[in-house]
Amino acid sequence: MLLIDCPCCGLRPETEFRCGGQAHVARPATPADVTDKDWSEYLFVRENPRGVHAERWIHQHGCGRWFNALRDTVSDRFVETYPMGGDPKSTTTETRL
């Protein structure tokens, strides 16, 4: 069970959280203008990297806030967590664990 650093509440066990998959997948501002192909990419295609991954979590059974995290998908270690809408302090390439 992971130990997750919620930006609002601090370190809490994983069972209080829900993972929302890849972070920074922005919804197109005007979906009507997007091609079928690009729309399917938005809906379905994910980075799924072996290494540091930017992903979304919500502290479901805590403050109820969504936030972002960088986590290494090989070691499962968190590099950092940061508020929704923000950018990470580390970059995914240099933080590979």
């Binding site: 919804r27 919500i58 479901q60 969504w66 929704m84 809408g85």
Partner: peptide, 13 residues
């Protein structure tokens, strides 16, 4: 509720 919260907080804050 989860579906609404997700859009509210992450797409349209």
């Amino acid at each position: 509720l989860n579906h609404m919260e997700d859009y509210l907080q992450t797409e349209w804050p």
